[in-house]
Nucleic acid binder design. Structure first.
Lengths: 236, 236
DNA sequence: CGGTTCTTTGAGGACCATCAATACGCGTGG
DNA sequence: CCACGCGTATTGATGGTCCTCAAAGAACCG
């Protein structure tokens, strides 16, 4: 039974509630593909032929205009992407590349649109996912427009702190140059920004981040649940 | 029959395909409210008790953090807002204020969530709307991260040009200070930016914009369908 | 271990914000 | 109708933030 290949995604929120028949129809013609690191899987402007699910590894969504590139978000295990383009049958707005060796499930967009119309549990899950991504993007934009780059970095450090179980020391999950791009700054500036966080209780050594004074960092960062809360939203 | 009050929204894409029963259930307890200009209707962080529809007038969505404010988008007749927060039953991420005297339809969020589960045509329409808003926001973010403020303004002028039926002269739909905030700059800088567009074929006098050299403006702006195309998306 | 990529540091400059002051537009009331 | 007041728009001066360019150091990988 080939359906077992997709067992690992069956329990994701997007698929958990749908009927087995629907799931079989959805994954009919779907496949799993392994990608090496640093491989561009999809390019912006192309039709969204497949819904993608990160089964393992790490994927960066980025975008380009006029020789500039910016990192929009980074996705890890169990994230889906290209959902909005898939549903609307429109071109991708972002490109995607692997950051590590990654295993990706690719579900034909045609299947998604068909099953979406037949299985209301799936439709509800899609609404939930779209609303989540939408709100995450709004938060991202508020972060960009309302804060300086140093404030964004401070809040990023706090977010990682929480994502690592409130650990006071942890490693950055991505390269600094990509973090810089995600935060809307240059690598050079990120380097300087880390130095400028020193007075606010943050020590950096390579990928290693240490929070020496959580109170000072928090006081400076002024985290806000309407920007930084990720309990129900995505993030890099 | 009081339902006639809501005839004007019945034909909106969000409601057009749903059953009449569902529409009646949705609008049961809904009401129309008139607001004066410059009135904050909803504040970020508050629960999303109502889905809002602009029946007439003009509404700005904006957000605040640490004494900074930024304009996220401006909505005109027939736009809906607070849909994502309504569906997810979560707090609003943005505040809303009227820019002109406006008539707003307010539909209890409880109704929206209930009918959403019962009427699949409504559910599909919601998916469509959420995907549209999501993609519009991604475009907005690309615009902010990939372009300088002058490039953003140039593309904004081009967008208005198209929205006014390719007219070469038109009035700005909103105050310049709000436009500045939407574009992520200060009013002073917007003023200077308009001057800097002069060499690219744009003349400004008060609210009046004139495009003297469309080719030059387009060459500078480098509009991109993956950022600026609004055939299927929203905008200010 | 050599080459490549990433990171850091410094110098210089472009872009953009802030502050301050003036000009403009508009509605109100004299 | 005009004077006034208020908010908006503009203009200039200044400083801060951030980018660019260049080069050296560190980490990674074949």
């Amino acid at each position: 039974m080939s359906a077992s290949r997709f067992d690992s995604i069956r329990d994701l929120p997007l698929f958990a509630q749908m009927h087995q028949d629907s799931f079989d129809a959805l994954t009919h013609g779907a496949f799993v593909q392994n990608f090496p690191p640093n491989m561009v899987m999809i390019s912006e402007g192309e039709p969204a032929d497949f819904l993608h699910i990160v089964q393992d590894g790490c994927v960066e969504l980025f975008s380009t205009w006029n020789n500039h590139e910016t990192s929009v978000t980074t996705l890890y295990k169990n994230s889906t992407f290209i959902l909005a383009a898939t549903i609307k049958d429109r071109p991708n707005l972002m490109s995607a590349r692997t950051l590590q060796k990654s295993r990706i499930v690719m579900v034909p967009s045609e299947n998604v649109r068909t099953v979406f119309r037949q299985d209301s549990a799936f439709a509800f899950a899609i609404v939930d996912e779209l609303a989540r991504c939408y709100r995450a993007t709004i938060k991202n934009m508020k972060n960009l427009k309302l804060r300086s780059s140093l404030e964004r970095l401070a809040n990023y450090v706090l977010k990682q702190h929480h994502r690592h179980g409130d650990a006071l020391a942890f490693d950055l999950p991505i390269e600094k140059r990509r973090l810089a791009s995600y935060l809307g700054m240059t690598p050079e500036n990120l380097s300087r920004a880390f130095n400028n966080l020193k007075p606010h209780g943050v020590a950096v050594s390579g990928q290693r981040i240490e929070i020496l004074d959580l109170a000072a960092l928090t006081a400076y960062a002024k985290p806000d649940r309407l920007i930084d809360d990720t309990t129900a939203e995505q993030a890099p």
